[in-house]
Design a binder for these strands. Structure first.
Lengths: 336, 336
DNA sequence: CTGAAAGCGCTTACAG
DNA sequence: CTGAAAGCGCTTACAG
């Protein structure tokens, strides 16, 4: 193992507390001593033991991030936003994937707490109120991202999902579509509600007819679209819960010998980097993904700093703006 | 802060070592004691302090991963592969982004070492031999991925880049292309060499004419392609150093009013999930990305376990197979 | 300017 | 079956 302050001290026949002080540039230690100690430490590749430091100071300079799947472009981008921000402040980050399992999430949470992270950012695999009220009792600051019940007793940053989905659906309606389907996510019911409301506001009944549930990945979208394709009256447009699902849907449509947007229009949600390159380029709601991560990190670090003061914002709720990015995957329907 | 073993001990007027043992299910502690202690601990939300445990045991159950950019599909997939594997063994992972900066990489490495990770997996931002020989002196096991000089004095897992690029270039040649360009990466010179060798073997001189260097992202590919488009004799095919670069190249070609593959064929490298959805679908060399992560994790954990024994494989070199996935972005040239 | 002590929360030999 | 002690590598009041 690495050399310790005690071993350095022995070398100079001094006390290890002096070594500790010299290494910290304590002005009370004489210039000469400091120099020789630091030089020796360097030569011996001394690496301060943060575990011991943390043990003493109660500061670990680490936070944890819990997401469902890093492979998902949304989550890797959020994570990058978080990492970039906290790194500047000398924090490290533990990353945990839950694969949408709430049990895994609880396990991860526990591990993080055992490792004494100073704060946690979580995109939860559940929306269970009880769970969140438990979370809010945890001492370490927590910031929710992406998934959260509005008015959860915790800080969160994300978007207004209802509004965004409403906006997307209205766009589809404005193109003349009436049979608009929605491939919804397990936890993305706000988006589904925004979709439904838009249909209702347009005077469309039975808005739940064309709703099918799916996972968030490409394959999930493929399968969900296959289901929608079985309807005798096929939808003419589909609002997908994520871009990846939208891509899967496009693939399913093509495999059926149909065309996007000629036969069916597709609107995505996220606007990941690759969506501009699909065929056709995907029209989608854009979330400021990186920014979501950055803001969450900012709030978390702030809560950590003010942990013991009243400045701690136990409940900062940030909803960032979304934007409908119109590309080529949605077609205007001819008037009948 | 959370409750400690001492506080629990006080509650029952016993010694904290007894509490420690009860919590560990030490059979020497009486059934009754154990039960009441565990129950009380649970009620009080006792969370064992891993920092203290690590401090004692010298095991932190954490590893570090250093990559250039998590936003890059390749790296997030590798990371997932690593995480999934080590999680089963109860390890946590620190994730560090270097953004291709070697200074940042060194800083990250140092932080990881201070935090006493038990091992590190790194996709380095450099190929400097001196650097790697320094790395090899570090006590913690290290496994290199993606970027490494062949025969580096460290374990690594990746692919045979030379061979893969050779294979891709040969495919382009077989399609009748002669003016084949290569958008190379800063560190991907093996791929470039495979490309050059294939051209040479086909009797093509001046193989460096059509080589241009670029970053690894979409935008980088866009800019690099713009340069290639300026040649009086434009290339008829391009081997891109990554899929993302290939996508950028396609965009640049289209923006110039040209078509892929009609005017220029594009071959990617990686075969990320999104490449099947581009327009046209991207022909690319497929790397077993997730598997690279998994294997690297396996070797690392093995080295950690055998750290002090001869079983430690200080230099396991694994090169996984690649495959050329033919889709629609490369066209057969007509015979003249 | 430097030293000796105490303590952070655990665990594990050593006793009994 | 349980206790008391020592120690992991640091830091920081307290002395002098």
């Amino acid at each position: 193992m690495g050399i310790t302050t005690r071993q350095i001290a022995k070398q100079f026949k001094i006390h290890h507390s002096t070594v500790s002080r010299a290494l910290q540039d304590d002005p009370r230690i004489s210039e000469a001593r400091r120099k020789e100690i630091k030089q020796f430490a360097k030569k011996k590749n001394y690496v301060p033991n943060m575990i011991a430091k943390s043990f003493f100071s109660k500061k670990t300079y680490t936070i944890g991030i819990i997401v469902s799947d890093l492979t998902n472009s949304f989550f890797s981008t959020v994570t990058k936003g978080i990492e970039d921000f906290v790194n500047q402040k000398d924090y490290s980050v533990f990353i945990c994937n839950t694969d949408e399992s709430i049990d895994e999430e609880k396990k991860d949470l526990n591990t993080l707490l055992e490792k004494r992270v100073e704060g946690i950012i979580v995109a939860s695999a559940t929306l269970d109120k009880k769970y969140f009220s438990e979370l809010s009792k945890i001492e370490a600051p927590i910031v929710l991202i992406d998934r959260f019940p509005l008015n959860a007793p915790l800080s969160y940053v994300g978007i207004n999902n209802f509004e965004a989905a409403y906006k997307a659906t209205k766009y589809l309606l404005s193109l003349g579509h009436r049979r608009i389907a929605h491939i919804m996510g397990r936890l993305e019911s706000e988006r589904m509600q925004g979709y439904s409301q838009a249909l209702k506001d347009a005077g469309i009944k039975n808005t739940s007819n064309y709703i099918t549930q799916s996972g968030l990945r490409i394959n999930d979208g493929y399968k969900a679209m296959q289901e929608l394709l079985k309807f005798k009256q096929r939808p003419t447009a589909v609002l997908a819960v994520t871009d990846a699902v939208g891509m899967g849907a496009i693939a399913a449509i093509k495999d059926e010998g149909l065309d996007v947007p000629r036969d069916i229009s597709i609107c995505g949600f996220d606007d990941i980097e690759y969506s501009q390159f699909t065929n056709p380029p995907l029209t989608a709601i854009r979330q400021p993904v990186y920014e979501i991560g950055r803001r969450a990190a900012e709030i978390l670090l702030n809560d950590i700093k003010n942990k013991h003061s009243d400045l701690r914002s136990k409940r900062t709720h940030v909803l960032l703006d979304t934007e409908l990015v119109i590309r080529k995957s949605c077609k205007k329907l001819k008037q009948k």
